[in-house]
Nucleic acid binder design. Structure first.
Length: 417
RNA sequence: GGGAGUGUAGCGAAGUCUGGCUAAACGCGACGGACUGUAACUCCGUUCCUUCGGGUUCGUAGGUUCGAAUCCUACCGCUCCCA
């Protein structure tokens, strides 16, 4: 049985609020309509949190819609208010750099025939202050703006006029896309509800109450322990392979707990209900197999980094967790371990503790000594427990590499200069 | 402008009255180890640096003292109340 776009989202647990479910389905049925997700260039890469609305947009596209993505060059210069504190403005250089990075990533994820990627600086950047106040400002009621959750929470601690205005800009975005790209739906995280409804209200003001415009938000993602999703050891998981290697990315998904994996399969993959039900069954009957985790890791890594990256990540995982790394050749090391954090090492014999600290594997000598003494350190596949041990970087792999393992599964690759 | 608080290790939070036993309780996080499914739970260890002698810390700068996170002075930051 085939579910429609909304039913599918509900089944996936990916629907938080929607303005007019029946109206949206009707609009989708009566012709090709567009939906958009906006993202501000607050960093030079997207992370897993950003992926959530994009996945929904992709589903919309798969359901026959047109996908539009706004890169918020202009809104990013203003800053979407956070519930607690004012944002630090980004420099225009930083902003430009972030825009470049994020545009490239989005293009990689969505860059096909049926996707439009636009930058709101193209229209917001042209708007003069007086036009802004006359054409749009009149249509926004301060009273309504003050009631938006984010603004209300900030009235206690203070909010600048700049950030207060953000919702107007996002409203203009929605209208602009409505006008020029036939976009009828805006998709965002649950914190975007206020901004989305601002846009819908603006469209109604400008185009009449009959104008079709819809909004949809996605629930905040948390793991089974209630923690915010998407961090690994305190670090964000980035989509940029230079910031988070495909191997680390793959491992992040592979290591998800049984309690979360089915939820994530629904959220982050395009697998259908039968297949996910089967995987859920596998988790219940044979959790040790981790069939669901493996499938999750494959699917998401494929979506973000491509088929080849999946194979590399799996090969590397196999090498690290089952193989004997000491027997690998230098070429195999170079080939397989590209995804592991690396450092430069001198070609001279060095004490193990100094070697680890100099390579950035350990933060201090005290820590290094502790880990060595605890048997947490392996060099080229051999455990080193003597704090006084000397490391000869040229002893393995044709003198090109030193493979360091800290703990059970953290690897570092020393490249000999 | 007046008044009352408050500032301690990554975070939270004791210690301050009654100076030394305090490199500083405890919790969280983080990092290791055992167990295991490259899990979860649980358990154990570590968590300022170190040439392992010691060194440098409790907002900042001075002062009192044999000795200060603890007492005094000034300054800076934050919070609350009144105007």
């Amino acid at each position: 049985m085939k579910m429609n776009f909304i039913e599918d989202l509900k089944w996936r647990g990916a629907l938080n609020q929607i303005t007019d479910e029946a109206g949206l389905l009707e609009a989708m049925a009566s012709g090709k309509v567009g939906a958009y997700v906006g993202t501000d260039p607050t960093a030079d890469s997207l992370h897993l949190g950003h992926l959530i609305p994009f996945m929904v947009l992709k589903r919309f596209q798969n359901a026959g819609g047109k996908a539009v993505i706004i890169i918020g060059g202009a809104t990013g210069a203003i800053g979407d208010p956070r519930p607690t504190t004012e944002r630090q403005l980004l420099s225009s250089e930083q902003l430009a750099e972030n825009e470049k990075g994020i545009t490239a990533q989005v293009t990689k994820l969505f860059g096909d025939n049926d996707t439009r990627i636009v930058n709101n600086n193209d229209w917001l950047g042209q708007l003069t202050l007086t036009d802004f106040l006359r054409d749009y400002g009149k249509l926004f009621s301060i009273n309504v703006m003050l009631k938006k959750d984010v603004v209300a929470s900030r009235l206690e601690t203070g909010i600048s006029f700049t950030e207060f205005t953000y919702q107007v800009l996002q409203g203009i975005d929605f209208h602009e896309l409505w006008r020029r790209e036939d976009v009828k739906l805006q998709i965002g995280g649950s914190d975007q509800w206020g901004n989305i409804t601002s846009g819908i209200d603006l469209i109604h003001s400008l185009e009449g109450n009959e104008a079709k415009a819809f909004g949809l938000t996605i629930p905040l993602m948390t793991d089974s322990t209630g923690k915010k999703f998407g961090k690994s050891e305190g670090n964000a998981i980035w989509l940029d392979p230079k910031k988070t290697s495909p191997y680390t990315f793959y491992q992040f998904w592979l290591n998800q707990g049984d309690a979360d994996v089915v939820k994530y399969l629904k959220y982050f993959t395009f697998l259908g209900s039968e297949e996910i039900d089967d995987l859920a069954e596998a988790v219940a009957t044979n959790p040790g197999e981790r069939l669901a985790q493996r499938r999750l890791a494959q699917e998401v890594t494929k979506f973000v980094h491509g088929e080849a990256a999946v194979k590399e990540a799996e090969d590397l995982s196999t090498a690290l967790f089952s193989g004997n790394v000491a027997t690998l050749s230098a070429a195999q090391i170079a080939d397989a371990f590209g995804g592991v954090p690396s450092f430069e090492a001198a070609n001279t014999v060095k004490n193990i503790v100094d070697f680890l600290v100099d390579g950035g594997v350990e933060a201090s000598k005290r820590q290094a000594r502790e880990d060595v003494a605890n048997g947490a350190i392996s060099i080229n596949g051999e455990k080193v427990t003597d704090v006084a041990a000397e490391i000869n970087p040229l002893s393995h792999y044709d003198g090109q590499f030193v493979l360091v393992r800290r703990g059970k599964k953290k690897y570092f690759l020393g490249k000999i200069k």
